[in-house]
Simulated scan of single mutants.
Amino acid sequence: MFTGLIQALGTIRPLGGDSWQITCVSQSSEIVMQDLAYGDSVAVDGVCLTVEEVLKDGFIATASPETLRRTTLGGEQTQQKYVYPERSRRVNLETSLRVGGKVGGHFVMGHVDGVGRMLAAEQTASSWEITFTAPEAIARYIVPKGSIAVNGISLTVAAYEPELSQFAVAVIPLTYAETNLSYLSSGSLVNLEGDILGKYVEKFLVPGNQRPDAADEITPTFLAEHGYL
């Protein structure tokens, strides 16, 4: 599990097959590398990968066929389904959350739901306002002021237009500068992960998912009565 607070930037390149080499490139790389070990989990652009070999300034990991299918990694390898822009080859890195660690963002699982696209980024006096598209697989979990992970970054949804399957976020200058958002351009593809809390709520609300003997069914009315809406 991760928090969506990026610790460092890296680069990624295929080694053949399903293997990838991730190299740390930012000045904060020691945060990722200081005690990195075989078997550790690292979120690479929001994709949870397992360290199979530790290098001097990075590590090697394998991406499963399911991971390649659901994320931008698949396009980078095949150059068929998704095309990962050259300018965006820098990836966000975050090591897994430790027991007792601070949760500054939100709970990010590293299980990407799908690939979206950046439409536009506009700089304002105090932030960057960035708009993305989202596939249906994740759009149903997007709510205004809710959380979403974009390339592994924990962001708050500022606005959502369901009819266009678009959402916008406001990004502070620090986050923009210290993540690969600053390397993206209009049309760049990004990994998206919906808030795990929304997925559990959906599971309880969808007909057929509830226990037949449940004393209190979880419905929109139930949630409203208990302060969730």
Rank of each mutant, 00 (worst) to 15 (best):
A149V: 11
V150C: 10
N151E: 12
N151L: 10
G152S: 07
G152F: 07
G152D: 11
I153G: 02
L155S: 07
L155V: 00
L155D: 01
T156H: 11
V157Q: 09
A158F: 05
A158G: 03
A158H: 06
A159S: 12
A159E: 14
Y160W: 15
E161A: 13
E161W: 13
E161M: 11
P162K: 07
L164N: 14
S165P: 04
S165G: 09
S165F: 08
Q166Y: 09
Q166R: 15
Q166D: 10
Q166A: 08
Q166T: 14
F167I: 01
F167W: 02
F167N: 07
F167T: 03
V169P: 03
V169I: 10
V169T: 02
V169S: 02
V171F: 01
V171C: 04
I172Y: 07
I172M: 07
I172S: 00
P173Q: 05
P173Y: 08
P173G: 09
Y176L: 00
Y176V: 04
Y176W: 15
A177N: 12
A177T: 14
E178Y: 02
E178I: 06
E178Q: 12
E178M: 05
T179I: 03
T179A: 04
N180R: 10
N180Y: 02
N180W: 07
L181H: 05
S182Y: 01
S182C: 13
S182A: 10
Y183M: 12
Y183K: 12
Y183D: 15
L184W: 00
L184I: 05
S185G: 07
S185T: 11
S186D: 13
G187C: 09
S188N: 06
